[in-house]
Design a protein around this nucleic acid. Sequence first.
RNA 1: GCCGGGAUAGCCAAGUGGUACGGCGACCGUCUCGAAAACGGUUACGCGCAAGCGUGCAGGGGUUCGAAUCCCUUUCCCGGCGCCA
Length: 421
Amino acid sequence: MLDPKLIKESPQIIQDMLKARSVEFDLVGLIESDQKRREFIIKTDELRKKKNQVALEISQKKKKGENVSSILEEMKNVSAKLSELELEQENIEKSYSKLALTIPNLVHKSVPVGVDESSNIEIRKWGNIPNFDFKINDHIDISENLDLVDLERAAKVAGARFYYLKNDLVRLNQSLIHYGLDFLAKKEYSLIQPPYMINRESMEGAVIADDFEEVIYKVEEEDLYMIGTSEHAMAAMHSNEIIEGKDLPLRYAGVSPCFRKEAGAHGRDQKGIFRVHQFDKIEQFVFSRPEDSWNEHEKMISVAEEFYQSLEIPYRVMLLSTGDMGKVSSKTYDIEAWMSGQNAYREIVSCSNCLDYQARRLKIRFRDKTNEDTQYLHTLNSTLIATTRILVALMENGQTKDGHIKIPHVIQSYMGNQKEI
RNA sequence: GCCGGGAUAGCCAAGUGGUACGGCGACCGUCUCGAAAACGGUUACGCGCAAGCGUGCAGGGGUUCGAAUCCCUUUCCCGGCGCCA
C-alpha cells in the first residue's frame, strides 16, 4: 500500500512508477474513489455529530423527567439516514481498498527500467568458475549415482517437484541450516522459527493479491495458508504494533520450510531439486527506520555475499530491472551462484527493500517519544540460504573425478569433519 | 473436544442501556544554576488549511431513539477435565 496523500498530491510520481513497471492500473479510478471516500467521511461524520448531540439531549431531558417522544422521532430519522449513508460508504471503501491494495510499490531511482530479466544489471562478481578435467554431471545424475535423492518415489507419493533427500545429503542440508543460523547469530540477528501456516489477514499484509493464486497453498476449511517463506510470517509478526524507536532496527533470522505452488513455472527447471514445492530456507528480515533502510539493504546483501564467500561458491550480484522485480519491492538485488552442471549463474538469493509498503498494510509503526506521532517503519527481506539450490551448487561445483562431492571447509565441522560425500 | 471464567488505550484497571472513572510508565512544559518533587499538558486512528469533528471497549452480526454494557456468533487467553508427539 502507498501513502494515500502521495497519490492525491503527486499522481505524476505514481504514473511514472506504473510506466516504469509496465503495469496496467486504474490510477484515475483510485484517485476518484479516494476523493469520493473522503467526501463520504465528511458527510457521515457530520451526521454522527448530529446523532451524538440528539442522544445527549434525550438523556438530559430524561433525567429532568421531560417528555421526549418528539425528539425520539428525530433521532430515529437521523439514525435511519446514517445507516443508509454508511452502507454506501462501505461500498466506496471496498472499491477503494481493492485498488489501493493492488497498486505496486514505488521504484528506487537506481533501478533499471525494462520488461524482463534481460535488463538486469550485473553489479559485481566473486570467485572463480571451477575448471574440470573430466566430463561433469548435473546434480540429478550426481545425486542419483550417490543415492542422495529419490525423485521418482516423491512423484509417486506427492507429485512432481517433490523430493526425498537421502543419506549424507540430509546431513549436508541440516548442516547448512545449522551453519547459517550460527552465521547470523554471530551478527546479532534474533533467531526465529515462525508458524508455517498463517491466517489470511497476515498473508495479505506481506503478499500482493495476484500472487496468492500463483504461489500460496491454502489449507482447506481453515483460515490458514502455508507460508511461501518465513518472510510472510515475520512481516506479520509485529502487525498492529507501535515499536519504540530505540529498539530499531530489529534484525531477524527466520528459519522454516517454504511451500510454493510454482503455478507460473510450467516447464521450467522441471527436473531435480532446483525448483520445488517445498524447501528449507533461512531468511533475513529487518524492521528499520525509514532513513536507515537503504543502508540496511546494502548491509543485508553483503551479509549474504560474505556467507557465500565462506562457502566458496562463485556468484554474481544482479540489480533487478523493473520488469523482473516483485510488486512489493522498491529495489531488489539477486545473487546468482555459478552452477557447473548447468553452465550458468542461477538465482539463489533475493534481497529487497519494501520501504513502508508492507508496514502500511500491516500497520507496523514506531515512534521515539510517546507524545510524538507514529510513523510507518520500513521492512526489508533477504534470503540467506534456500538449501535445495545450494545443494545443487555444491553437488555440481564440488564434484570429483571419482564421482564424489567435496564438502566446503566451513561445513565440515558440522558433519563430523567429513570432507567428502 | 467438553465445562467454567475472561479480552477496555503502552501497562494496570473502573464502568449492568444515556458524553470511556482512575492509576502507572513515557514524553513535553512551568518552576530551578541544574535535577528531583510539585503542578499543567501530551501519550490509537481518520477527515479538515484551521477551529474542530468523528471513529475506537478482541472481530463480525443483531436488539434499541441510543450498546463497553443486552442477545447471537467467531477468534484468542486463563482454569479444570479429556485426548496426545
